[in-house]
Design a protein around this nucleic acid. Sequence first.
DNA 1: TTTAACTAATACAAATTGGGTGATATTATC
DNA 2: GATAATATCACCCAATTTGTATTAGTTAAA
Lengths: 207, 207
Amino acid sequence: MFKKKVIIIEDQDDLRDSFELIVNGTKKFRVLKTYIDGESAVAEVHKTLPDIAMVDLELPGINGIETIKIIKEKSPKTECIIVTVYDDPNLVFKALKAGAAGYIIKDANYLEIIDSLIQLDNGGAPMSPQIARIVIQNFHINEDSPLSKRETEVLELISEGKSYFQISEELFISKDTARSHIRNIYIKLNVNSKSAALAKAKKDHLI
Amino acid sequence: MFKKKVIIIEDQDDLRDSFELIVNGTKKFRVLKTYIDGESAVAEVHKTLPDIAMVDLELPGINGIETIKIIKEKSPKTECIIVTVYDDPNLVFKALKAGAAGYIIKDANYLEIIDSLIQLDNGGAPMSPQIARIVIQNFHINEDSPLSKRETEVLELISEGKSYFQISEELFISKDTARSHIRNIYIKLNVNSKSAALAKAKKDHLI
DNA sequence: TTTAACTAATACAAATTGGGTGATATTATC
DNA sequence: GATAATATCACCCAATTTGTATTAGTTAAA
């Protein structure tokens, strides 16, 4: 069986070498090439077409997130996994948006790293526990919402792109009542437009 | 050390018994009580205050998602994990919104189930590989967006709740130009309001 | 019983949208 | 190099939506 081709993009020499040793110590994976920055990796990714790319977030030149974006453009089948010290939620979400299929923290031991590659290979999405928690908490709806049940219902319809009139029809209330609810939502969320209400709702996990 | 208290809510007798055996076979966890439906579990959850609740999705009476919502209300510290045969993305997202900290597929073997409990205990978010992939793909941005780079930029500002004028200021363009972009976005997305554009963008993972 | 929520209505002002039109400069793409 | 797409800016008008303010009856919950 062919081994899965892995590239490693990591500017720290010691880590890059460690990762290479770990990966090459497996039966299923082998390191095709390692890179010290994103530019050199993306320059030839259309030729290397790796199965897996292990990418550091903090890189000289273009960062890991940009690197992943370009890799996914030039070689869509390459599964990218972020390997970093940062567990800032914003970075996590940016990486996932860019197309990362996994995100692990650098203090993971070599077994966890190998396990991540295996998970990737099995169609999974390897994440360190704290990252998985960040991701999953992003979905949780805030129970301490300042909105009433009805207002939450209206807000959900707003998030579906419904107009005043459409909302009133959907809830079997008058257009004016729908507007009343929306106005109360605005007051409670301290906003003054549907899109701002949605932005606030998203930020506070209200819907 | 105290063992973590686990409750199991599962209507199928054989599965419920299996789970109980598996959990009680560990050193760290013990089954406090098992339930055949959500009602009976939530009726006493304020007293049992379990550390972990394993919840089936398909239950007689209230379903697993409703059950989780109530559990999280009455005992916020209880970590809920869905154990089900369903891997429908909509159900997954609903469960996560309701407050589930994990989601595993029933065909998981007993080792995976134990591992999930351990992950939960370690602050992780246990998910079967295919579920993790569903969750993570929900973040990925569609590369085949019909929108131009600039239009995507504008759409992002809309998603932040910005008005025409605020967008024009942010991008150092005139209000009319911002309007042009927004109008072009509407045409491409086949919508006619900001919130509808956001709904469509969310659906198609454009931002 | 007091409060909060839901409902409904009226009215004016502001913002947004739909439709059209035209133009220039830059960038990609072929 | 030519063509197409994109980004920029500007103006018009009419219709709709939305924002804001205010009032008020009914119902549900604390």
